[in-house]
């Protein structure tokens, strides 16, 4: 690890400086995480009177439980659709904004503010628009002959939460894509233009490959976002329903642990989620160290 050539020498001071952060980290992060791991090997009986050690039984049960397997695939569909939709739209907008000279900053201001909207609030906004009785989107869809009802149709509910999650993330992706586009030297596009490549061809053969580090970075960030930061969206709108159609993993941990009080199972789910986060973080950091993807 990198250090300073010049350092201060003091025995107690560095520990005192680190103490607050380490104390909070230990009490509210490491200790609960350890508890979750320990808890995941235990089973409590229905009345909470007796706890017994069951080894990996909780994990095996989870993998046999249809609801959990369903939740895994729901999370996969949700994360991939959100990432693709949000990054696709953001790239389109960033590519358009990159062409602008005077109006670029104005468009940026108008596009970045949804970052500040809380996921739960974003959920309520769209929930209102898709409301089957009075919502404007469901009204428009009805005019087109589609009977929208996210309270009954799992597909409708999934489409709705994907739209909400993507809407909220567009501003973030837009900022990073725009920064990525602006760091590509103009000389490359100019050289391609002299060789007779049109704007579309230039975009796909010159700009897009050079943008791949940004794209890859955003892909990881978006998947993390869709998996872990969207609890508010689900909780404020569909609550995992109808019939488990939008029950993503973080929501299921909450539901099983906090409402269902199935402690062992919830802890095992937490541990699986931790493993996923650790995996994604490692991918992100390995990539950040190299910076270039090809």
């Amino acid at each position: 690890m990198q250090t300073k050539r010049v350092v201060f020498s003091n025995r107690g001071l560095p520990y005192a400086l680190l103490a607050p952060q380490l104390a909070i980290t230990f009490v509210f992060f490491l200790w609960p995480a350890g508890q979750a791991i320990w808890q995941s090997f235990l089973r409590e009986d229905a009345f909470g009177l007796k706890t017994s050690f069951v080894g990996v039984e909780n994990y095996l049960r989870l993998l046999r439980e249809p609801d959990y397997l369903n939740s895994l695939s729901v999370t996969g569909v949700f994360a991939v659709s959100t990432t693709v939709l949000s990054m696709g739209l953001a790239l389109l907008l960033a590519a358009a904004a990159d062409r602008m000279i005077r109006s670029r900053d104005a468009y940026t201001t108008l596009l970045v503010w949804p970052y500040a909207v809380a996921p739960a609030v974003a959920g309520v906004l769209w929930w209102f628009m898709f409301n089957p009785t009075i919502g404007i989107m469901s009204y428009l869809l009805e005019q087109l002959g589609y009977d929208w009802n996210h309270r009954l149709s799992g597909t409708d509910a999934m489409i709705m939460v994907v739209i909400v999650a993507a809407w909220k993330q567009i501003s973030y992706n837009f900022l990073f894509f725009l920064a990525g586009l602006q760091s590509i030297p103009h000389s490359l596009s100019e050289a391609a233009a002299i060789d007779g490549a049109g704007p579309v061809k230039r975009f796909f053969t010159v700009v897009l490959p050079l943008l791949s580090p940004t794209t890859f970075f955003l892909m990881v960030v978006n998947i993390v976002y869709a998996m872990f930061d969207t609890f508010g969206i689900i909780h404020a709108t569909t609550e995992g329903g109808p019939s488990q159609a939008t029950n993503i993993l973080v929501y299921k941990v909450f539901e099983d642990g906090f409402i269902g009080l199935n402690l062992g199972s919830s802890a095992a789910q937490s541990v699986i989620l931790m493993v996923i986060v650790i995996g994604l973080t490692v991918i992100q950091f390995r990539f950040v160290e190299r910076r270039v993807a090809y």
Binding site: T25, F29, W31, P32, A33, Q35, A36, Q39, F228, D229, F231, V250, V253, F254, G257, F258, L263, S266, A267, S270, L273, M274, V277, I278, T281
Partner: peptide, 12 residues
């Protein structure tokens, strides 16, 4: 701590 968001350690 980067790897332990609230969402994954709710109960403990």
């Amino acid at each position: 701590t980067l790897m332990l968001p609230v969402e994954v350690r709710i109960l403990p």
